[in-house]
Structures are given as C-alpha cells and as structure tokens.
Design a protein around this nucleic acid. Structure first.
Length: 507
DNA sequence: AAAAAAG
C-alpha cells in the first residue's frame, strides 16, 4: 500500500564517490578504471535503497545515468564465482539477475556497461536476444552466468527450451519500464516475471513513467520506493540540459532538401534522423547516400547483422548519420550526437522525449529539429500540450528560408541543391564521394548564432550538477565533463542548474 | 497506427 516517494535532489557534492556507499571494492575499482568516480543523482539516490533490497521505480531524465543506477546494485547483490558462498548456492551458474530491454541494440549496450562494472569481480554477463545464432548463447548458459541481459522473445524462447533457468534470478530489472509494460510487451514480460522467484527484488527504470504505468507496475512489485531525480531548478521536468528544440512546418516535397541543408550545420557532430516507418527510413538513407552523405540505416526490416553493422559504424564514426525508426529512440547512448532530426513527427510525447534525448547527454548541448507536415498537426498538438512547450504553432519554413540558415547555424553560402545527386558507380566510390561543396565560412559559430530570429521555441536547460560531471559508462549516462559547447547560454559556469533560456513564441 | 520482440 504505502509507497515511499523520494523527489529531493541529493546533496550531490563533488566529494561523494561510489566508495562512500556499501559497494564491493572491486566494483568501485572497475568503475574507477572507466573514469567513473562520482555517482549521478539517480545513482546516489537509488544506491542505498537498492542495496537494502527494496523494490524501486527509478525515474530520471534521458542521459543522466540510469543504467548504472540499476547496474551497480544488480552487480553488488551477485555472488561471484570465487566468493565464499558461491559453492553453497542452490544452483551455481544459474543467473542471479535478469535485465530486460525493449530492443536488441539496447540490450547489447546495457550488457556492455554492466560488464564494465563487473570486470574485476569475475561476474559473467550474457546477452540473449533474437536475430542471432542460438549456439553461443546456449553455450554461455551451459558454462554458467551470473547476469542475463536480453530482449523478451529470445529470453522466453531459451527459457522454454530449458536452457535458461530464471528460477534463481533474485534481482529483476525492466529497463525502459513504461515501454516494457506497454501493451505490445506486457504479455511477454508477465510470462518472464512468472519464471522468476517470488521474493525477488524488482527495479523499474525509465525517463518517462506515466501514473497509469506506476499503478500497473505495483502489481509486479512489493512496496516499491519511487525515486525521481527529475528536478533541476526552474526546468520543465521533461528534457534535461541544453537541448535546443526547433519545430518547423515542412512540406512533403521539400523535406529531403531541408534535411540535406540542416546536415550542413556548422559544428554538426553525429546526427540521428528519426522516421515513423521503416519504409521512410530506408528512403531517407537512400536519398542521403545518393547526395554523398555518410548515412546508415537502423530499422526492423534489416537483418540483425546489418543493424549491428550500422550501429557499430555510427559508434566508430565511419558514418556520422544514423537514419532510424523508433527502434533507436530509447536508451541508445552514443557520444557527440549533436543533432536529432525528427524527419517524421513522433507519435506521442514520450517518443518525442526519448528521441530528442539521444542528444544533450552528459552535460553536453544538443539540437533537436522536428519536421511537422499537415498530417502531423494533431500529433504535434498533443506533444506541444503534453510537454507544455508553449509553441503556438510550428514555424513555416522552407529549405531556402533564411530562418533555417540562421537558427540552425547553416552557412549562408549553401545555395542551390545540396549534394548533387549522382549514382555512385561502386560502393567504394560511394564512400569516397565528397561531402557536398560547402565553402568554409569564416563566421564563427557564435556570431552566426547571435542576432538570429528566435521565433521558434528555444529551451535551454541546465547541465548536470557539478558533482555529476565525469565520464561515465552506460546508456543514459552523462558523459563528458563541463567541457561546455557554448550553447548553454545565460548562466555562469558553476551556477545553479536553472532554466537558462525560455521559449519565445512566434505568431 | 507503427515499431518492437522468436523463427
């Protein structure tokens, strides 16, 4: 009945370290190896409660360290091979913890982050997901593992084949919990939970946690403590940090051209382009490739090999543009994603928040651009209202608009068609194609941005608190330091996190 | 209504 709710910000002072908590020294050391010393607010708030074995509903904004928020306590409860009590376990080698994620790529990423923290403890982590051969996964289970990370289908599959024994998984985590408890996933998740022990510790994490989901979640939990690390002075409680958000009316005929222009933005790092359908994602990646951009696709029509190839190329930097469906909307954490472009308007406000949350991570700034065509107006209206964005209407803008150039810091000498379409003769040549003939402009980013028309909403939120700034591991983990890209305007370094810029309405 | 998740 009673649900404890913690909403306060912990005193996240710079001198708080993982070593201050009751965490195994080998885990503290492994984190330190990865340059992770100071816990983020969600981690500091969660640790004591999780270590005491309580159920947790953990909510924190995108890019603020949720993965280690559950990863560290999960590992800390594991009895590792070589530990005194290991031989006395009822089933040594059977998974002691289960972490479930909604997409394969996220499962892989989370497993990697957990492995980083597990390294010095000799804890074995296996990732179980579809689209890949069974044998290696089954072999790992036969050898014995302590932590399983996976997606629902393959987990149930392997459990059904008796290769996976979840009967001793006394810690269970649902990452992106609101998604996992959504209609599409709920039946599978229920089946999975039914295979785990009754007295298990259950932890749910997400940046979005609607009240209805919390209510539903209680059915699978025991007196959960609701921990929300959402508050930063004056912020809107939705997005974190400095994400500048732009909304443009875009006409179907002009969308590709607008996109190609936005990709000319100065200081553009990695960019994720979202579409609502697999077909559109495929179309956009073709258009961009034809124009000489280095783009890769990520969606469910691709084989798992191709999906992971795209993901790896994007992480490595071989390609700097990822064109994806909402398969990439949640959790995916890649450094230096400076731009998120919603080529198609997201379906709802949750998807919007998760998509734009691929940028502006780790105290870095980010730019999010959303195209809204006529059909999107109802969707847009709901998002605008739900998030209280305060934008009366998306701005009317074309690929040739000065607004576009100025607001998005696109060199003004980009004229005519961007990226002459031309069929490359070979894949090799494709890669070697020039990236558009844009003259290097001397104007600095700062001056180009000053004096621009600000009729689109500009939401500039605070960076993570000082204590939280360091290079962490894990999705939803801020990385980088205070190294501020100069877009977090309006507040002095070290000032209280605060809403630094507000939206100004167009007409 | 789409995408995701087993094959």
């Amino acid at each position: 009945m009673t649900e404890n709710t913690q909403t306060e910000h912990p005193a996240a002072a710079d001198d708080v370290t993982f070593g201050d908590f009751d965490v195994h020294p080998d885990i503290v050391a492994a984190l330190a190896d990865a340059g992770i010393v100071h816990p983020f607010p969600i981690q500091a708030m969660t640790l004591p409660v999780a270590l005491s074995g309580h159920d947790i509903i953990g909510q924190a904004k995108t890019g603020t360290g949720k993965t280690l928020g559950f990863g560290v306590p999960v590992l800390n409860r594991v009895i590792a091979p070589g530990d005194p009590g290991y031989a006395d376990l009822p089933a040594p080698g059977a998974p002691q913890a289960l972490i479930v994620a909604p997409t394969r790529e996220l499962a892989v990423q989370v497993a990697g982050d957990v492995e980083t923290a597990a390294k010095r403890r000799g804890i074995r982590v296996v990732t179980l997901y579809g689209g890949r051969a069974y044998e290696p996964q089954i072999d790992a289970l036969k050898t014995g593992v302590e932590v399983v990370v996976g997606t629902p289908g393959r987990l149930l599959d392997l459990a059904g084949q008796k290769h996976l024994n979840l009967g001793y998984a006394r810690t269970v985590v649902l990452d992106e919990a609101d998604e996992m408890l959504d209609l599409g996933f709920l039946p599978d998740v229920e089946r999975l939970l039914a295979l785990t022990p009754a007295g298990r510790q259950t932890m749910l994490f997400s940046a979005t946690m609607p009240g209805a989901v919390v209510t539903l979640a209680r059915r699978y939990m025991t007196q959960p403590t609701h921990i929300r690390a959402m508050h930063e002075d004056g912020d809107n409680q939705h997005t974190v940090k400095a994400i500048e958000q732009f909304f443009y009316r875009a006409h179907a005929m002009d969308k590709v051209e607008m996109l190609a222009r936005i990709l000319q933005a100065r200081d553009r790092g990695r960019t994720i382009i979202f579409s609502r359908t697999k077909r559109t994602a495929a179309k956009v990646v073709d258009e961009l490739t034809e124009r000489g951009f280095n783009a890769a696709a990520l969606h469910g029509d691709l084989g798992q090999g191709a999906r992971e190839h795209s993901m790896n190329a994007f992480r490595k930097g071989t390609v700097d543009i990822l064109v994806a469906t909402d398969v990439a909307a949640r959790g995916i954490d890649v450094d230096n994603v400076t731009h998120v472009i919603n080529y198609q308007c997201p379906e709802d406000e949750k998807t919007y928040l998760h998509r734009v949350g691929r940028t502006g991570r780790a105290g870095n700034t980010g730019i999010a651009v959303t195209f809204i065509d006529w059909d999107d107006m109802p969707r847009w209206g709901l998002i605008n209202k739900a998030l209280d964005l305060g934008v009366p209407e998306p701005e009317e803008t074309y690929s040739s608009s000065e607004h576009l150039y100025q607001q998005l810091n696109i060199p003004t000498d980009v004229t005519g068609r961007v990226g002459a379409p031309r069929r490359p003769t070979s894949p090799r040549e494709k890669g070697a194609q020039l990236r558009i003939g844009v003259r290097r402009a001397v104007t600095s980013a700062a001056s180009a941005r000053s004096g621009r028309d600000r009729s689109a909403v500009v939401v500039v939120l605070a960076r993570a608190p000082a204590a939280a700034r360091r290079r962490p591991t894990g999705h939803d983990r801020p990385g980088g330091g205070p190294g501020g890209g100069g877009r977090c305007r309006g507040r002095a370094p070290g000032a209280d996190p605060a809403l630094a810029g507000g939206g100004a309405g167009g007409s």
